[in-house]
């Protein structure tokens, strides 16, 4: 067999393998992608919450995209406490102003950033939230102060539709 012929044969087999591999990949993808959120899940709308009955010092929990969202109407003391914390004391430094558009209202995902449990209201060493699963303490701004959680609780996209209504998402 001449050298030329060998090369051509190799090329044929390589091309066949390569084209075949592309097809396998293209076939596998739909089987994987079908597990991603489907069109109806992606289209899930925002939630509007009526907060007119919420008094200062209280928290309500609403469901948004299958997760709890805490809405806390904070008292003046709580606001000044949240603002007085020095940045260097924080594990994940964030100013309270950056977390609450209106200092009276804290809207955040009620999901512990450690492993996804729901923290308890008005518990813990910092008068905020305490996660019972693995002992993470959050302050009144939802910032992590003590325990295994790496970051502060997440703030979702939200806006005030009017004075009584908050739209999350």
């Amino acid at each position: 067999m001449s050298k030329n012929k060998t090369t051509r044969r190799d090329f044929l087999f390589t091309a066949t393998y390569a084209v075949g591999a592309v097809g396998v990949g293209a076939t596998v993808w739909p089987m994987i992608d079908q597990m991603n959120p489907d069109a109806s899940v992606k289209a899930l709308a925002s939630t509007e919450v009526d907060v007119s009955s919420l008094t200062p010092g209280n928290t309500i929990t609403v469901l948004w995209r299958g997760k709890p969202v805490f809405i806390r109407r904070r008292t003046q003391e709580e606001i000044s406490e949240a603002k007085s914390v020095k940045m260097e004391e924080l594990k994940h430094p964030e100013k309270d102003e950056d977390r609450a558009k209106d200092p009276e209202w804290l809207v955040m995902l009620g999901v512990c950033t450690h492993l996804g449990c729901v923290p308890l209201n008005d518990k813990g060493d910092y008068n905020g939230w305490f996660c019972p699963c693995h002992g993470s303490h959050y302050d009144i701004s939802g910032r992590i102060r003590k325990g295994p959680a790496p970051t502060n609780m997440e703030i979702p996209k939200y806006e005030f539709v009017n004075t009584n209504t908050i739209k999350i998402g």
Binding site: L12, A15, T16, V19, G20, V22, G23, A26
Partner: peptide, 13 residues
Amino acid sequence: IYLIILTILVYFS
């Protein structure tokens, strides 16, 4: 089209 191309390649292989 893809299947036809691959079929031809496999045929010659």
